[in-house]
Design a protein around this nucleic acid. Structure first.
Lengths: 237, 237
DNA sequence: AAGTGGTCTAGACCACCTT
DNA sequence: AGGTGGTCTAGACCACTTA
């Protein structure tokens, strides 16, 4: 007896115990697995396999996949199948250009509109980042870095812009384990965060925009150099 | 006999004559109708009705709707239904902020990288815009304006950024019939296009970025003032 | 020519709302 | 309770790829 039959025989708790439907649950699960790197870029998603894994029929899976394609996470080839969208060099560059434009804009907006107490809160977040850096606490570094940028970006309340940025970070998230530990990268991030804070305290929107943009551009350059290095000597495990 | 039965009885031209599947066709059709303003913001989409209208069963419609939700065009409430996403004031502002950031960035990039012959082509596009303006040829004005901006934005080849901008223009597209004909708006657009061209010819990326951003911001301000005006005296038909 | 796997339909099921 | 309309499953169908 397979998992599905067992589930169906087990009375009737399968369909949404709460307000959740199956296709939403499947979409959430696949989204997490893609962003978390469990499902690798380029990997094919066979619908019947996903359906079996989630204990549902194929149709809710199809709907989840359609949603994820709309979000840009996978690509569906009609009558062929679906696979996790790869991140080639071009797409990485484009994503970071978008991030450059948006994070520059949002940093400028923060410089114009943030209160002094907002800036103090941001300083506290950066203090946590500095401490994680000093302790070489890698998960802590990533969390503190995310918190720092999220505080700036979310300040104006533009949820749509944040969604775009989050999606773009999600893209390169699976790469962070590679490039994220280079000492030069780490120290550039620390310095630029402090430069940003200075610009905010000086109330200098143009400087904040320039630093915010350059911050993202620097990340792209670091990633590309790590990729190129790995390409030239693929022996390194 | 209903339309669906008739279609199925008619031999076998229903399923994709080419490489097109039904859910793709339905998604494209709904997307066009939403962006084109045929389906109004806030309107509910009953799945069985859409299915009947497109001559398919309800399931391809569901998949199309999931995709459109992923793209942000509609919102789906599980077990309730789907409706075209409304554009409230907040969302309009947020969309234009994103456009401001991206179009500024792309104008800067164009100023840095475009060849002289590219700029000459852009001048020709603006000449067409000017002539449409002088002739008060409203469809021509809109087409020429789109062509002008598309030429700048597409120059760097960042398809993802263009997709975001197109989506954001699609949002306010249905409003253009209202605000688009105000003489002051029209003349501002003409002047700023020429300012952009000047900045490109001077090879001044920073000026191009500033003008490109202000161009979008000006559009937002015009739209908001028209909306506020309509709000304060709703008698105008 | 068979196999694999995506697509579509019909109908059952069930959540939510109305009476 | 009944109605409306969204959701799910099973199986048929078909496009595309193997021999």
């Amino acid at each position: 007896m397979d998992a599905e039959s067992a589930r169906r025989a087990a009375k009737r708790p399968p369909a949404g115990p709460r307000g959740e439907t199956n296709y939403v649950r499947v979409a959430n699960r696949l989204r997490e697995e893609i962003i978390g790197g469990i499902l690798k870029p380029g990997e094919w998603l066979r619908m019947s396999a996903v359906a079996a894994r989630c204990g549902v029929s194929v149709q809710p899976v199809r709907e989840a996949l359609q949603q994820l394609e709309g979000e840009g996470l996978i690509e569906i080839f009609p009558n062929r199948g679906a696979r996790v969208r790869g991140i080639d060099r071009q797409r990485l560059i484009h994503a970071h250009q978008i991030g450059e434009a948006l994070e520059g804009y949002l940093a400028k907006q923060f410089a114009e509109e943030a209160s002094l107490s907002d800036i103090r809160k941001l300083e506290a977040l950066q203090k946590a980042h500095d401490e994680a850096l000093d302790g070489e606490d890698w998960p802590g570094i990533e969390a503190a870095n995310d918190a720092f940028h999220r505080f700036i970006n979310a300040h104006g309340g533009n949820m749509e812009a944040i969604a775009i940025i989050v999606r773009f970070y999600g893209l390169s998230h699976s790469l962070q384990d590679w490039y994220g530990r280079a000492p030069r990268y780490i120290e550039r991030v620390r310095r630029e965060h402090h430069d940003l804070l200075d610009a905010f305290l000086r109330r200098d929107p143009d400087a904040a925009a320039a630093i915010g943009s350059r911050h993202v551009r620097g990340t792209l350059e670091d990633i590309l150099s790590v990729i190129d290095e790995a390409d030239s000597k693929p022996s390194t495990g």
